[in-house]
Design a protein around this nucleic acid. Sequence first.
DNA 1: TTTTGAGTTGTTCGA
DNA 2: GTCGAACAACTCAAA
Length: 487
Amino acid sequence: MKKAATIVWFRRDLRLQDNPALAAALERGAPIVPVYLFSPEEEGDWQPGGASRWWLHHALASLRDALLEQGLSLVLQRGASLAGLRKLAAQSGADAVFWNRRYEPAIKARDSDIKSALREDGLEARSFNGSLMWEPHEISTQNGDPYKVFTPFWKSVRARPAPAPCPLPDTEWLGLDNPPAGCDLDALALLPTLDWADDFAERWTPTLEGATAALEEFLDGPIKGYPDRRNHPARKGTSRLSPYLASGQLGPRQVWAAVHAAGAADSQAGYKFLSEIGWREFAYHLLVHFPKTPDTALYDKYADFPWQPDAGQLRAWQRGQTGYPIIDAGMRELWNTGWMHNRVRMIVASLLVKHLLQPWQEGARWFWDTLVDADLASNTMGWQWSAGCGADAAPYFRIFNPILQGEKFDPQGSYVKRWVPELKDLPAKYIHSPWEAPADVLHKAGLRLGDNYPQPIVEHKAGRERALAALQSNKMRNETRDKASSQ
DNA sequence: TTTTGAGTTGTTCGA
DNA sequence: GTCGAACAACTCAAA
């Protein structure tokens, strides 16, 4: 007797390899109905942003092609997930729905409801771990609490065996004779209507082949000098794997295994890189255990921090018009390519929350909308770290000096010149502090500060002191309040 | 329960 | 130019 079909619900696991839900469906030996349901309204306040949607469009096209090679046609649908799955089950006669877990608070809650509802319908509903090395709820301190500091978290997970990628069973790929029809990829309207993303395609290959190639390329070269080179935004020193991990075109177990297979895992550089996979795991650990953190500071004492919201300052930062070359280069790289170098992410974040006293949530929101690698766990952790209000936060006095950071990590100014063409004729000596250049140098470089390039939005020293004062006043207010409440 | 060691990515100042 | 210390106090996590 022919078995009823299995629905494989693809989400942020847009790959065939190392995909436990797909592997389990194959093992079942029944025809497979692969589906992607686009339901952004179910993602609460954190619906995919413009850059993520651009990536998603191409990732779906790539997945569709890969499935087609196996004789399966990916069903695309827009609308409510549960209704879509029910309809699909009825159309295809499926008796099971398999998927890989997601961990964003709104989606976790939705998926839990969907699982109950499908089971009440009499379907077999099963979820798997396809996105993480270690499930967040399986890791805890000796007291049973979640970790809030990276190093002990990392020690604890390193002591466990690293899970290997999930192999695809060697079985036949069965499809339905008459697979249900979905909509066209274009009908999901994932691509921007303006020409904003035109340059993305030059920078990225958002396909499954691109994912494999990026991993190989990194292990072939850049990983060797990783600890140092990764800090220089003008060089190709980082892995640039983040968008593949965010879309699930690569899983962390595949990356981990590839680092080992390349013999790099025992080197200092390899270890350093693997610890970045560890940071991603830590971010998910925090998101699952502290689900309010995408919007609210982890520590209550920062809940009423004296931010000074200012739409004009925020816009200048977003547009790369702050007058600090390394900041403006980073913000423009982000706008033009959907990505920003990690070192520069820290520098621009520090300026926004410290020098400009803008709420960290504004920065997180902008990154969310403009990054092709937007990931709620990593984005939340990173911004709270920068703002000093989250787990393992930077000490309050750690305020990045945008001039010094530029001089250290982009000494020739080549990164700045690439993204801020106004400064391309300025000598390296002044590239990170154009306002210090003598008048004749400025004239020769065609630079008129305040006219064709801004003056610094705030003087570094003044901004730093204002940030320290705000932190001081927040501390005082907390002490006063604690005193009052303890009496 | 108490104690102890430690904590991603920095900057500034003065010798 | 280079170097080391100071920058606060607090909380975490394990012993």
